[in-house]
């Protein structure tokens, strides 16, 4: 079984489909813009990006370096706010949330995986994975149990006490994934998660995301490797801060053989 069941009722999510039978969009961006100012020059990282992501989707965002992928991801993940436009996450306008509410959403509803793994140094894998639960106020024993399960589900059940420096890149990224899923979030965000990995690790990490998506989690994946996008149900391309293409790949992705049975229930959405 992949992923950890929510031990804390607060972490349980409401995934009731809309009454009209359509799933409501998990993520809805409307004409979102973001400009950075470096001295006198203004960098338009995002220009009028409009994008809706449905629940249970596996979305790949692609584009050349500097095209605004990370900026978009940070906005989706409530790490940053748009300069203009509207961002509604699970029906809530993010702009209306306080700093603390945003932290709470990042904690319970979103799981992040970064290119650079971003584990906390000199801290055992188990404690790294426990950290989101610490901030969620989950009791110690429960925390331990959930974190152990999450690490087991990414195949690191025998590395609980290893520090990041004692793990390979692929293993570190698995710890980061375990940390992202330990609170059983509805949304998984990964910014070039395989950017620093060799091809073998890349394949296994991508399969992991594919599996997590198969369980019903919405996954947004940034990458610039075409190969990676084979796993995606939908590919959005950015260029110079604008969405330049948006294609749905019904059946175009490879389902790892062992997963075929479990993905069967996943409804193919019209493009």
């Amino acid at each position: 079984m992949i992923g950890a069941p929510a031990g804390d009722p607060a972490l349980a999510r409401d995934s009731t489909p809309g009454t009209d039978g359509h799933r409501r969009p998990m993520i809805a961006l409307r004409e979102v813009g973001k400009t950075f100012h470096l001295g006198d020059t203004a960098v338009h990282a995002l220009r009028d990006v409009t994008l809706a992501v449905r629940e249970g989707d596996l979305l790949a965002i692609m584009g050349p370096s500097g095209s605004g992928k990370s900026t978009l991801m940070n906005i989706i993940g409530c790490l940053d706010l748009p300069d203009h436009g509207r961002y509604v996450l699970e029906g809530v306008d993010v702009r209306r949330l306080t700093e603390s509410e945003q932290a709470s959403i990042r904690n319970r509803r979103i799981g992040f995986v970064f290119q650079g793994f971003n584990l906390i140094a000199r801290t055992p894998a188990l404690e790294n994975v426990e950290l989101p639960l610490v901030y969620a106020g989950v009791a110690r024993r429960e925390r331990r149990r959930l974190a152990t399960e999450a690490l087991e589900s990414v195949g690191l059940g025998d590395r609980l006490d290893h520090q990041p420096s004692e793990l390979s890149g692929g293993q570190q990224q698995r710890v980061a994934i375990a940390r992202a899923i330990v609170t059983d979030p509805a949304l998984l965000l990964a910014d070039e998660p395989t950017g620093a990995l060799d091809s073998v690790s890349t394949a296994s990490v991508l399969e992991l995301f594919s599996e997590l998506n198969a369980q019903g989690r919405t996954v947004v994946l940034i990458t610039h490797e075409e190969e990676v996008s084979r796993y995606a149900k939908r590919v959005v391309r950015l260029h110079d801060g604008r969405v330049v293409s948006d294609e749905r790949r019904t059946g175009a992705y490879d389902v790892p053989p062992g997963l075929a049975a479990r993905t069967a229930h996943t409804e193919a959405l019209p493009a």
Binding site: S100, A103, R106, F112, N118, I120, Y135
Partner: peptide, 11 residues
């Protein structure tokens, strides 16, 4: 600090 905040640490 950034990592801690990203995974939901409050102020």
């Amino acid at each position: 600090i950034g990592i801690r905040k990203a995974i939901g640490a409050q102020r």
